[in-house]
Amino acid sequence: MTNRKVCIVGVGKIAHDQHVPAIDKSPDWELAATVSRAGSVEGIPIFRDFDVMLEERPDIEMVSLCMPPMARYQYARKALLAGRHVMMEKPPGQTLAEVQALVGMAKEKGVALFATWHSRMGKGVAGAKAALAGKEVTRGQITWKEDVRQWHPGQEWVFEPGGMGVFDPGINALSILTEILPEPVHVTRAELDFPEGRYTAIAARIEFSRGVSMDLDWLQKGDPSWDIEVETAEGTRVVLKFGGNELWVDGEKMPGAEIEEYPALYARMAELVDQRAIDVDLSPMTHVADAMTLGKRLTVEPFSF
């Protein structure tokens, strides 16, 4: 069977590191074109104008949006109105309302829409969810720290309005938390560190209901810390390390699932296209929005790449 054709829109670091290799491995998809102002993929036709691609390539039924979130709504809207299926990198947009509007368009056009949360595909996430099922959470600690200069080198957009700052990686942790907890939590308090002259935070401390807290830092040198610990009234202790890819339950390391994050996302997208279905969970973004609403803003020393 001939694979379905996909166009990557926004050919930057995440596209080269994750999306292109995942499509190459996929039994469902073939990379047929790209749209980018500057980037390209060797051997793949490139368009500089998204409208031209939509007009000239009716054979491409799905677009995978990999650009920063500030521009995502406009591209997703054009694709949906053209009857194309849409897959969106995280976060799916810069506001909740614009993503909700896209859901309405996808329903009206009868096409698939997928807001991806790649960290939910971590090898230990499903096991952590199973270990916590039916239990009462009494404490949780998220520690998500990395070096922005390593993971977003020179990418000034992360500090622009809509760029989310330290919540760009932090939302990965929130996508895992909202997947594994047996009951939802909500933000109760937050402190956000904004570098002088910047529009988004570089560090944050957040408190949630049910004794859950979160520590985000984008200035950690060396190896990143991508860890989640959860304790329950029943005595269960679940620890996820390495961004959800290593699971420990009550001090015992558990076997990981045979899964790769981005190939799993493209497999899920194929299912959604078959069903003409929508998979858009906005709970991680809701936590970010609530932290922004409740957060005490603190000004810290200037930051430059």
Rank of each mutant, 00 (worst) to 15 (best):
I14F: 04
I14C: 12
A15D: 00
A15M: 05
H16F: 08
H16S: 13
D17C: 09
D17I: 11
D17A: 15
D17Q: 13
D17G: 06
D17H: 12
Q18W: 13
Q18N: 15
Q18V: 06
Q18D: 14
Q18S: 14
Q18R: 11
H19N: 01
V20T: 02
V20H: 00
P21T: 01
P21Q: 02
P21S: 02
P21R: 05
P21K: 00
A22C: 05
A22Y: 08
A22G: 03
A22M: 05
I23V: 10
I23C: 02
I23D: 02
I23G: 00
D24R: 11
D24Q: 14
D24W: 00
D24V: 04
K25M: 00
S26Q: 00
S26A: 00
P27C: 09
P27S: 09
D28G: 03
D28L: 04
D28W: 10
D28H: 15
D28P: 01
D28I: 02
W29N: 04
W29I: 06
W29Y: 09
W29K: 07
W29C: 02
W29D: 03
E30W: 07
L31Q: 07
L31E: 01
L31Y: 11
L31C: 04
L31A: 06
A32H: 04
A32V: 00
A32E: 06
A32I: 03
A33N: 08
A33G: 06
T34M: 05
T34D: 05
T34K: 09
T34V: 15
T34Q: 06
V35H: 04
V35M: 08
V35K: 03
V35I: 10
S36E: 09
S36M: 03
S36N: 12
S36P: 12
R37P: 02
R37N: 13
A38R: 14
A38Q: 12
A38E: 11
G39W: 03
S40V: 07
S40G: 07
S40P: 04
V41C: 08
V41R: 12
V41Y: 05
E42M: 09
E42Q: 15
G43K: 11
G43E: 13
G43Q: 11
G43I: 00
I44D: 02
I44L: 04
I44F: 05
P45E: 13
P45Q: 12
P45L: 07
P45K: 10
P45V: 02
I46K: 15
I46M: 09
I46L: 14
F47M: 05
F47I: 03
R48H: 15
R48W: 08
D49E: 11
D49L: 01
D49T: 05
D49V: 12
D49G: 06
F50L: 07
D51R: 15
D51I: 13
D51V: 04
D51E: 15
D51W: 13
D51G: 14
V52W: 06
V52T: 14
V52M: 07
V52G: 01
V52R: 15
M53C: 09
M53G: 01
M53K: 03
M53S: 02
L54S: 08
L54A: 10
E55G: 13
E55F: 13
E55C: 05
E56Q: 15
E56L: 14
E56M: 13
R57Y: 15
R57A: 07
R57K: 13
P58K: 04
P58W: 10
D59V: 15
D59Y: 10
D59S: 03
D59E: 14
D59R: 05
I60M: 09
